[in-house]
Nucleic acid binder design. Structure first.
Lengths: 334, 334
DNA sequence: CTGTTAGCGCCTTCAA
DNA sequence: TTGAAGGCGCTAACAG
């Protein structure tokens, strides 16, 4: 016994006018007699009428919503970016729809297709890979879109990203000045942003050949777990060590575990993270980390996308944000 | 020069068949000749055709998406809940659309209306208030929906929530056993979940009349700031104090600042939080907190909503989750 | 100011 | 196995 949803015609009938008039009050057209308008409004109120956005969209009205696909909901980095986006667009009357690809390209494609299919006005995508099929799909869709957290190979794509090579270099310089006998690099899933960081890091390191590298560590839980392994395999307790972890979440997980295991930080093990999520200030040992102005990424991306949608974009927005190293307590240079 | 999106008719024309046939391959109907189907599929591929979900929906096909509105994106509690929801529903082929009300009822109403207007198949709402107008709107919409983080006054509403009174009582018992001369309560915005926690807490306290209460502290930043105030006003440095903070994010902010100010935790100031977000394990002083099984909330809510959508729900799902206190380091009983 | 008439893109009978 | 036709709810000219 589901109640039939009331439509524009129901309202029209009850008000004794035509659908067109009702439609006019919906779109707030000025040329509707005051009485008619009030009467219609009252009836709408009475039935808690909500226009069918699908129909509106079909008929040509913009949906006023932008879609965003990120890799991972539980990653504070993306949440902060999304929050930045939301602030900007909601200010312009747009709504945001987030979904998470869970680092799965198939999934990402499905979600992007969903968004295109839903005819959102614009899309912001943090692609799993710079060659994601979803990017091609997006291009052929004709919907304005913008990539974040990736520097696309193709030149005709809009993006906002941190200069990850530069970030890696900053970490490398820091390492060089710390002079630790043991140097370890811990990275996440093989994402472009990560490989650029690795590259910049290695090319700056004075003795890259001695670097120990752990891959595919992507969450703080995984960081927490790998810590015990490191302790034993790389004899953290007896050899002064420096860790570069390309993701703050992971770095924090490692530090937490290391502290539990009685390792002193930064004295015995120094840790440099990447991202400068808010949490890095609040964790047990405030994190020395490479900052990429998270708030900016979201804000800039949102503003640029809006311009692309409104058609006022002069040229293709392509922002490469310069990173900075923030020295806190987990790694210090005296 | 925006390219016209290709439609079912374009495909039909090019394939030399009728729209109906194309539609049939879209819905994977068995009664289409293999050759026709392959031909059509090929053409769709060629144009990267993506069906217009608006049109499909208008014509009666379910959208396979559920909407969710939370109070605050930056609150780890909600993120974890959303993540739990996503895991469940994506498994069933549904997509999720999150948006944030930013604790603004008007905004919440707008977002819910958006969702209804978009004819999503179901909605999960964490209402700003138990009397939110959006709840009434949702009821009259006929769309299956479920409330989280609130125990509705009306009996005919589906919900999943923690038993917040019980949680408050747990904290109260803990306080009683700590015997601190100064007892402080720090709460967030006046939300139902908060007032229940306060109530349960106060009614359990042995000397509630001595309780000091700070309100409207809602983020870790605000917690960080209020800490300095507490230090001076309530002479934290000289009087052994116990703090009950009804939100882990805030508790962590306070602790961070207190440590910076040289206060020892839990020796000088004990802190009990609420929510048991993941972070509470990872922060500088692992948090003693009231756990409400966050993961469960998301999972249960999603499963129940799906049942409501599929129409297989026996009765109205109403879950009151029993809280537990988790003793870590920020407050201890010997 | 208001009604009429076409669609928007797709699905679903009903016939063929 | 396929096509024709009508309709989903709404907007947008075009006449009055």
């Amino acid at each position: 016994m589901k109640k039939k949803t009331v439509t524009i015609s129901d309202i029209a009938t009850e008000a004794g006018v035509s659908k067109a008039t009702v439609s006019r009050v919906l779109s707030n057209s000025p040329k509707v007699k005051k009485e008619s308008k009030e009467k219609i409004l009252k009836i709408m109120e009475k039935y808690s009428y909500v226009p069918n956005n699908m129909a509106q969209s079909l008929a040509g009205t913009p949906r006023m919503t932008i879609g965003i696909v990120i890799d991972e909901l539980a990653n504070f980095f993306f949440i902060e970016v999304a929050d930045g986006i939301d602030k900007v667009i909601s200010h312009s009357g747009y709504s945001m729809q987030i979904s998470s690809s869970r680092w799965d390209e198939e999934n990402e494609l499905r979600l992007v297709r969903q968004l295109i299919s839903s005819r959102v006005d614009g899309i912001i995508l943090a692609p799993v890979s710079e060659t994601s099929r979803s990017i091609a799909l997006l291009k052929s869709s004709g919907i304005p879109f913008l990539l974040i957290n990736v520097i696309p190979k193709q030149e005709d794509l809009a993006f906002v990203s941190c200069d990850n090579s530069a970030g890696g270099r900053l970490a490398g310089q820091f390492f060089n000045r710390m002079h630790r006998p043991c140097q370890i690099l811990i990275t996440g899933y093989p994402h472009q942003s990560i490989s650029y960081r690795i590259q910049g890091f290695k090319e700056t390191l004075e003795k890259p050949e001695e670097l120990i590298h752990y891959e595919n560590i992507n969450t703080y839980e995984q960081g927490y777990e790998i810590a015990s392994v490191l302790l034993i395999k790389n004899r953290l307790a007896s050899i002064k060590t420096a860790l570069f972890v390309t993701n703050d979440n992971v770095a924090i997980g490692i530090i937490t575990r290391l502290l539990e295991l009685g390792i002193s930080i930064p004295e015995q093990v120094s840790v440099i993270g990447y991202d400068d999520i808010k949490l890095s200030t609040f964790c047990r040992i405030p994190l020395t980390t490479v900052s990429q102005g998270i708030k900016d990424i979201g804000k800039i991306a949102a503003m640029e996308l809006l311009e692309m949608i409104e058609g006022s974009a002069e040229e293709l927005p392509q922002h490469l944000i310069e990173p900075q190293i923030v020295m806190r307590q987990s790694a210090v240079i005296l």
